[in-house]
Amino acid sequence: MKLEINNKYCIRCGLCEDLYPDLFKRNFEEHCIDVLHEELPAELEERAKQAVADCAVAMIRLVK
């Protein structure tokens, strides 16, 4: 499983990083949000699901 952000419509509000600093990090160079885990560790899957639900603009996806 991995997390994906749709950068076309992500508003870069940073809520995901504020709530889930173990999953996301703001990238000030590229003006985007970096997903921290290329492959999501199993123990973070529940948090990742919450992060998907918490995105203000529903632009985070959990994909296989």
Binding site: I11, C13, D18, D54, A56, V57
Partner: peptide, 18 residues
Amino acid sequence: EGRGKGHAMALALLRMRI
């Protein structure tokens, strides 16, 4: 309604862009 500061308006502008 929104998840945090600015979200309602940020969402409004996203929808407006679309």
